[in-house]
Design a protein around this nucleic acid. Structure first.
Lengths: 221, 221
DNA sequence: CATTGTGAATCAATTCACAGCA
DNA sequence: TGCTGTGAATTGATTCACAATG
């Protein structure tokens, strides 16, 4: 399944591995912002919940080496992972829903920091059209297909009321969106070639609370 | 590691299993809302990204049986999983940040549907104190410790600007909060017995885009 | 001397193949 | 016939122990 081409590792990496790499990436980027220079496998493990040994194996697997007694060079690590994951380019995003949630997402720095640009914001409320959220002028939802085509957007975010979510998803898939971030609590039905990710905070809560209540209040790693 | 007490499975389930159970739970709850009665392991697999065989093994492991040719009884499944995970009670949540994001979270139905109640909302902006977001009156952040104690809150949500996030986290841990949902892009430093979950939409994006770009546009499962 | 890098052992997850039942 | 339930094989992840090294 892996194939090496020349010196460059252009393989098809395992799902588990790429998933973990994104975690190392985000943590390391934040540590850099705090002024950190090197990062150890133990730290990466602590912040990601992944075993330090696994961290070392993973970084090794993508051909990235650290220095013993010190750790991994933070900036180089970020670059290496971004290169491996093909995240050197930026992606345009179509955001639908200009209410509180949409405004918050459009104003957040979290997406631009990772190379994602909210390029268009849509709504169906006439009052909101023409206003700006996070420096972007809100367009009418009817323009979605045209805009998505022009800006080559393959990522869409649904931040509408639940009742509109499926309808918006239909518009998005019709317009050629390939990945949907769904902030509503609706289970979207989409074609097989479109991927939906649900932003659901309760997922992690439920899992955590199980252990918290099991052990009766004491810590769990 | 597992121990059965009487007929009831009061074990300490594996992390992987509990994690998967929460996914089955959320999907099944949504399918019920769509009017569904039974759900098959294949459907659960499709919506959660988990192998159908694994789904069946998991449900079997918690002593839940389906009917061949039909699937699993949706309502019973929800009840069984909630019982196993100890999610029959409700949890009070302290939300800090009454801006766009905080308002969106407070108004969302996603938390109450899963047994989580946003019981208090805090901010440090005098203009916002006394206003209501999602039916809750905003209090000053100075009252956090008192309120958390009174309402027995162990879950906190940080929906402030990034600059305030660590400070809020400190207040929360000091007040006895055990689980923090962090909506900012700051890497929070907390005591070992406090668990932080970061709501970061880019995690899933990066992972997905890797495969999307690798295969050049064709579908992946 | 803290931390990387790895072999070997163990445990969990995935997958195949198919029997068994409504 | 469609879906559950499960043995057996395989693959991936975790953990232990420890050598190596900057």
């Amino acid at each position: 399944m892996k194939q090496e081409v020349g010196g460059k590792v252009r393989a098809t990496l395992q799902p588990g591995l790429t998933n973990r790499l994104t975690k190392y990436l985000r943590v390391t980027q934040q540590l850099i912002e705090e002024g950190r220079d090197a990062v150890s496998s133990k730290e990466l493990g602590d912040f990601t919940g992944i075993n330090p040994v696994q961290v070392r194996r993973d970084l090794n697997a993508i051909g990235f080496s650290g220095t013993r007694g010190v750790g991994y060079q933070a900036y180089d690590l970020v670059e290496a992972v971004r290169a491996i994951l093909g995240l050197k380019q930026t992606y345009n995003i179509a955001l639908v829903g200009a209410g509180n949630l949409g405004s918050a997402i459009a104003s957040s720095t979290i997406l631009p920091k990772r190379g994602f640009v909210i390029h268009d914001v849509f709504d169906n409320d006439g009052d909101k059209i023409g206003r700006t959220v996070g420096n972007i002028v809100v367009k009418h939802i009817d323009e979605l297909k045209k805009s998505v085509g022009e800006a080559d957007e393959i990522i869409g975010i649904i931040a509408t009321p639940s009742a509109s979510a499926q309808e918006v998803a239909n518009l998005m898939t019709d317009a050629g969106i390939r990945v949907i971030l769904n902030y509503t609590d609706v289970l979207l039905h989409v074609p097989y070639n479109v991927e939906v990710h649900r932003i659901d905070p309760t997922a992690q809560l439920m899992h955590t609370l199980y252990y918290l209540t099991q052990v009766g209040g004491e810590a769990a790693s």
